[in-house]
């Protein structure tokens, strides 16, 4: 089984000359199907850059970012946009739901943008909302929901349509402890069901839900705790 997300020798430099900032330096990183990987590090360590690159929203200065085996750089702008709609789901700290759309409409949007018929997209959205435990809130607007419920909608939107890579940037940041834990439980369940998840957080207690925890410092991976899933061990054996 190959990695859903792979960063191979990735360096990202912002600016040049005296103001040059090396946000990431020669980073190797991967997330397999069924695996939740947490990325920790202080502000400015490169966590967000890593997530932005993984999502195809920015491109590395050197190295390659591959999602389901496809080098994002080889896709071109349109191809990357399509990849973002069909393969990659995002969960943000501040939910980023569209206030004028209901929960179901928010979740259906990426499918509709991708050309799915409205009925098909709505059915997929309802199923995704059901899976995150808020099927009954499908016709509510974001401001009629609690923070935890809004984040559930955001997770449903991130996974609708068989997307297998979930990128979460401090998804529990705006939530109280219990609600935050519910969200992690949900992310964990999506990964256990076969998705690959990357969770950026500065809270050790939240990172502990992951299979592996990667520590970034000044754009470099300094440490890793936890273990690779059994499949990837087999894979590296086979590669030897």
């Amino acid at each position: 089984m190959s990695a859903i997300l792979e960063l191979a020798d990735v360096t990202r430099i912002h600016g040049s000359g005296a103001t040059e900032v090396r946000a990431l330096r020669a980073v190797h990183f991967h997330a397999h199907a069924g695996e939740l990987v947490a990325v920790m590090g202080p502000s400015g360590s490169g966590k967000s850059t890593l997530l932005t690159l993984a999502g195809g929203l920015d491109q590395p200065t050197h190295g390659a970012v591959r999602v389901e085996g496809v080098d994002l750089a080889s896709l071109g702008y349109k191809g990357r946009a399509r990849m973002r709609r069909t393969s990659i789901g995002y969960v943000f700290q501040d939910f980023n739901l569209i206030p004028a759309l209901t929960a179901a409409e928010n979740v259906a949007l990426p499918r509709e943008l991708d050309g799915a018929r409205a009925g098909v997209a709505r059915r997929a959205a309802l199923q995704a909302l059901e899976e995150v435990g808020i099927g009954e809130l499908a016709d509510r607007f974001p401001d009629e929901m609690s923070g935890g419920q809004q984040q559930r909608v955001a997770i449903a939107r991130a996974v609708v349509g068989e997307r297998r890579l979930i990128l979460a940037d401090e998804p529990t940041g705006a939530l109280d402890t219990d609600t935050g834990e519910e969200i992690l439980r949900l992310l964990r369940a999506r990964c256990d069901a076969g998705a690959a998840g990357v969770l950026v957080t500065h809270e050790a207690r939240h990172a502990a839900w992951a299979d592996r925890v990667v520590f970034l410092r000044d754009g470099v991976v300094v440490d890793e705790s936890g273990t690779d899933p059994a499949e990837s061990l087999l894979e590296s054996d086979a590669a030897r």
């Binding site: 992951a210 440490d223 705790s225 936890g226």
Partner: peptide, 16 residues
């Protein structure tokens, strides 16, 4: 510091 943080993180993962 780094060695300890990795070890404590592993323990935290176990508790979780």
């Amino acid at each position: 510091i780094q060695g300890q943080r990795t070890a404590t993180m592993a323990a935290l993962q176990d508790y979780t």
